[in-house]
Write a protein that binds this DNA or RNA. Structure first.
Length: 756
DNA sequence: ATAGGGTTAG
């Protein structure tokens, strides 16, 4: 019997000495494991603990956990090995599960395991659990350990309970650097400059020298609260105090400089990077590229990028984002492809940057295509990708893609994210689905101002002024102060419906009650509101009284109203101002010539057209889109290359015959070409792109399906009349979004009540 | 077996 025990002890010793926890590979561990079972040593606490910790360090948590459960008498080290490994790989809830199991097995925690348990609470932002562990620390006397104390300070900071963190710090007999700097960086993260500085001074008074972690924590904390100049300030103090910074300090400082667009300081920090030898630190490299990009040197950084030896994804991403931001989408796409070819594994950030770049530069279709490619490439979109895609869907009214993105975010559990939510509201509103937008709005548990504004502007776009104003008031009673965007939306709603008195009241209340100075867009809304209701003189005097020079939107609003009310005198004034501001915008010339044409002043029409010719500008081609069977189809006026064009035109002609028989007369004053022949003019009317898109929709969808069409210009009066007819003749609900608003055609009527 | 700092996308 004694011999058996002795030989077992020998085997045990042999095992313990030959397996090194930190260097053992997974296959070595598995081999050893089988051996241990064969030798009947698996119930030995030390051996099993060693094995489980190797498993855990290879992230084989289930194997490790089942090993732990099979140890008859696990000690604190058995639990600690697994808890620490879980926490190392951010598996905080697993770490806590093991911790709770440990307590259940009546193994008493010590001061070495408590910080990890507290860290897990912090990682999960589990304040209640953290408090319980804190209470345990107090009753057990383990609170006297400085590691336990500083991890508690950190936990409270992470859970946004700075007052608790402060209390813990105040009760410490000997506050240390770690605890002080954790709280200081907590204040920095809140943008609380005052308290952060007070704490630093306190530290100095008590003779506690800040270390590298303290400095870096402050810089990164200020970055997180958007206090970039404070961050740079800390960096400068650190630097001038002779404190040697590292890659962390440099990458944080560069990020701050990028957001401040301070090229001079950026170049200085670049100098530090070279001098201190951090040129190959991947974090430093990407924030360096990002900094130059944000400081307006996007094109200069391509050669810099090419010289980098080890191109990391982060560096690629910074370059792609910088190029996109600078409007160089083609270059961004090129860089993206080159990185792919070089075998760099591009990630969500890379794809999202490119999608965002396309979306921000008007390449919305490309953005939607990229989103699909991304999924084919096996990259999961996240809570940043989705709002980018949704914004692209909104501008091209790609409802099917937008809905798919909505489903995706529901499945992934980030449909409540505020960016996602406001983008959803915007997408549905822009795709003509105002009720769906409202549902997303109602579902959001913690709406922010952006959500409220998206909802108001959605209603405004649909001409639903009552709802827009209701939401505007509801927003205030829910404790949100309207900002300039809210006022733009509510004023534009008033303008859609011609509510002069309400509009005027909002306009004056904006500065009087909310201290918001009217901006250009507010004036544009007022000019359009007054103009639309025929108060052209009042509209013009508002422009003359503006405290700053009116832009093209303001003059454009006046010019449009002059067309509606056929005022040649003011129309000329507005047009002349516009010719100065944007000489190449064909729309302005066309509006003016329309005003003349409507009054039969053909001489003047010719003059305007000659002017266009002499400057060499052409009419901006009308273009409409419609989504049919998950695909966005574009239709151009007079585009003979479209495969279904013959069929479409036949149907258009058939419809106009029906229309004539029903007693509708084509409104030829909307024809832009100065064709004298009436029949010819009618023929041109047939070709307006919105009509083509609607007929395309009728031909390619089942009877009764509602159609949603988008147009890049304002809808013309003749199309408006025709579409009203088509909606009743074909028994279809038709939604048309032009540059101004939505028109909802149903049973021969339009939601704008012919006021637009 | 212990706590504390980093870049790039909306």
């Amino acid at each position: 019997m004694e011999r058996v025990i002795r030989s077992n002890n020998l085997k045990k010793a042999a095992f313990l000495s030959c397996l090194n926890t930190s260097t053992a590979t997974l296959s070595e561990a598995k081999q050893a494991h089988t051996h241990v079972i064969k030798e009947g040593l698996s119930s030995q606490t030390r051996i099993a603990t060693k094995l489980l910790s190797i498993y855990a360090n290879h992230q084989c948590f289930t194997d490790a956990y089942s090993l732990l459960c099979r140890i008859p008498e696990p000690d604190i080290l058995s639990f600690a090995s697994l808890i620490n490994a879980c926490s190392k790989f951010d598996r905080f809830s697993d770490a806590l599960k093991v911790f709770v199991r440990m307590l259940g097995r009546s193994v008493f925690p010590d001061a070495r395991i408590l910080p990890t348990a507290i860290k897990a609470c912090a990682g999960l932002s589990a304040l209640e659990l953290g408090r319980q562990v804190h209470a345990f620390g107090v009753t057990s006397g383990l609170m006297l350990d400085s590691f336990v104390e500083s991890s508690l300070v950190h936990m409270y900071v992470k859970c946004d309970e700075l007052n608790y963190a402060r209390k813990v710090l105040a009760r410490m007999s000997e506050p240390d650097v770690a605890s002080c700097s954790a709280l200081a960086s907590g204040y920095a993260k809140k943008g609380d400059v005052g308290n952060a500085n007070v704490l630093i001074r306190e530290m100095e008074k008590q003779g506690i020298q800040p270390n590298l972690i303290s400095w870096n924590g402050m810089i990164s904390g200020f970055n997180q609260s958007g206090a970039f100049s404070e961050a740079i300030g800390v960096f400068k103090v650190m630097h001038s105090g002779g404190f040697k910074c590292d890659g962390v300090s440099l990458s944080c400082a560069l990020a701050a400089v990028g957001d401040l667009e301070d090229l001079i300081v950026g170049v200085q920090i670049h100098g530090c990077v070279i001098k201190l030898g951090f040129r190959s630190d991947k974090y430093v490299v990407s924030s360096l590229l990002d900094m130059y990009g944000k400081c307006g040197c996007a094109s200069d950084i391509i050669p810099v990028f090419e010289e980098i030896d080890h191109k990391d994804v982060g560096a690629c991403n910074a370059l792609i984002a910088s190029l996109s931001r600078a409007g160089m989408v083609a270059e961004a796409v090129k860089t993206f492809k080159q990185c792919q070819e070089q075998g760099i594994e591009l990630d969500v950030v890379s794809w999202t940057s490119l999608i965002a770049g396309c979306m921000q530069n008007g390449n919305d279709i490309e953005a939607v295509d990229l989103f699909r490619e991304m999924q084919v490439a096996g990259i999961e979109p996240n809570y940043v990708t989705i709002p980018c895609l949704l914004t692209a869907c909104a501008s091209i009214a790609a409802l099917a893609h937008g809905k798919a993105a909505h489903c995706f975010s529901l499945k992934r559990g980030f449909s409540d994210d505020l960016y996602v939510c406001s983008a959803l509201i915007d997408m549905y509103a822009n795709c003509g689905r105002i009720q769906a937008a409202r549902r997303c709005f109602d579902w959001e548990p913690s709406r922010n101002l952006v959500c409220w504004n998206a909802m108001i502007s959605g209603y405004a776009m649909h001409g639903r002024v009552k709802e827009a104003i209701d939401i505007f008031h509801l927003m205030q009673s829910s404790g949100h102060k309207p900002d300039f965007v809210s006022f733009t939306s509510v004023l534009s709603a008033c303008s859609q419906r011609g509510l002069v008195e309400e509009g005027k009241r909002f306009f004056s209340s904006m500065s009087a009650d909310f201290g918001i100075k009217p901006r250009m867009e507010h004036y544009a809304c007022m000019v359009s509101l007054l103009g639309r209701t025929g108060k052209l003189e009042e509209s013009y005097s508002l422009i003359k009284d503006m405290p700053f020079a009116p832009d093209a939107c303001v003059w454009g609003a006046l010019l449009s109203s002059c067309r509606v009310h056929q005022n040649t005198r003011l129309g000329k004034v507005a047009a002349n101002a516009l010719f100065e501001l944007e000489p190449n915008n064909s729309g302005n010339y066309i509006l003016l010539s329309n005003i003349y044409a409507a009054k039969g002043k053909w001489n003047e029409v010719h003059k305007v057209r000659d002017m266009m010719k002499s400057i060499g500008i052409r009419k901006n081609p009308g273009c409409s889109w419609i989504e049919v069977k998950n695909k966005v189809h574009t239709l151009l006026a007079g585009d003979s290359s479209h495969p279904q064009m013959k069929q479409i035109l036949e149907k258009v002609n058939k419809l106009s015959m029906e229309m004539k028989m029903a007693g509708y007369l084509p409104d030829t004053k909307f024809v832009l070409q100065d064709v004298e022949e009436l029949e010819e003019r009618e023929h041109i009317l047939c070709g307006h792109s919105e009509k083509l898109a609607i007929v395309f929709g009728i031909l390619n969808t089942n009877p009764g399906t509602s159609l949603t069409v988008m147009k890049n210009l304002r809808i013309c009066g003749d199309c408006h009349t025709s579409i009203k007819f088509i909606s009743s003749f074909e028994e279809r609900e038709i939604l048309v979004r032009d540059t101004n608003r939505f028109h909802h055609f149903k049973d021969g009527m339009c939601s704008c009540e012919d006021l637009w």
